[in-house]
Amino acid sequence: MFKLKQEPPTPCSVPSHDEPLKYFCETCDNTICRDCAILTHKGHEYKLMADSYTKHYEDLEQLLVPVKEKISTVKNMLSILTKREIDVGERGERVLEEIHEMVEEMIGDLHQSERKLTDQAKRVTSTKLKQKQAGQLSLEHLEQVENYVEKSLKTGTPPQILSSKEQMKKHMNEITTLISAEDLLPKVEADIVLSKDVRSLRHIGDIISGTALYSNAE
């Protein structure tokens, strides 16, 4: 039980009323004096202030019950959320570590792919350059035969030239038959290009929480 606070009587705000406020008009929801009850609140429902106070005090206490229950519920939820906050923070840190490890692994794979592509490019380049090397070797053979025949023609005597003419013809026929200028033409285009395929790097994963998907895809 509660006790009504004992306070000095409060005078009525109406200047012509000399009575203190001792009633409560339920109709107007306002405190009134005896003169107010007789004059301006005639026919209204009013009670002694102490009685109205008791009734409304109890009503307010009853209305406060669900508020207190809600406060208790919210406090419990906040306690759970505090624990969950710690779990979320720890799991978030683990996810960040996993992202870092995944990216580091991908970087390692990229370096390995770089080495493979580099070796492949070098092999292709070397293969294409070998055709020129073969042409240079053919030119050397042709020039050797040319020098041999020209030197023989310039320095040899008629008997020497006549006696070696078949040998010179043989060398020239063999070298011209063996070497074909058409064979030295490039069989494929000289350009070497890189065919890029990096689509998977633009979307390497998503963050999933419960049923929600937080995607970084554009």
Rank of each mutant, 00 (worst) to 15 (best):
F2R: 10
P9V: 09
T10V: 15
P11Y: 06
P11W: 01
E19L: 06
E19K: 06
K22V: 11
E26F: 11
E26M: 08
T27F: 01
I32S: 06
R34C: 02
C36P: 07
A37Y: 03
T40D: 10
H41R: 02
K42V: 02
G43T: 06
G43K: 09
H44W: 04
Y46R: 02
K47I: 04
L48A: 06
M49H: 08
Y57N: 10
E58T: 04
E61K: 10
V67E: 02
E69R: 11
E69K: 14
K70A: 13
T73M: 08
K75Q: 15
K75I: 13
K75W: 07
N76I: 05
L78W: 02
T82G: 03
E85P: 06
I86L: 09
V88A: 07
G89A: 12
R94F: 07
I99R: 11
V103E: 05
E105S: 12
D109W: 00
H111E: 15
S113E: 12
E114A: 05
D119R: 09
R123S: 10
V124L: 15
V124T: 14
S126W: 04
T127N: 08
L129Y: 04
L129M: 09
L129C: 06
Q131D: 12
K132W: 07
Q133S: 06
G135M: 14
S138F: 14
S138G: 07
L139R: 13
E140G: 08
H141E: 15
H141M: 14
H141T: 13
L142K: 09
V145S: 10
E146P: 00
E146S: 05
Y148W: 08
S152E: 12
L153S: 07
K154C: 03
K154F: 00
K154N: 06
P158I: 14
P158G: 01
P159N: 06
E166G: 12
Q167L: 14
K169G: 01
H171W: 10
M172V: 13
N173T: 04
E174H: 02
T176G: 03
I179S: 07
I179E: 05
S180F: 05
S180I: 03
L185Y: 03
L185S: 05
K187T: 08
K187G: 11
K196H: 05
D197N: 15
S200V: 05
S200Q: 10
R202W: 04
R202T: 14
I208P: 02
S209R: 05
S215V: 05
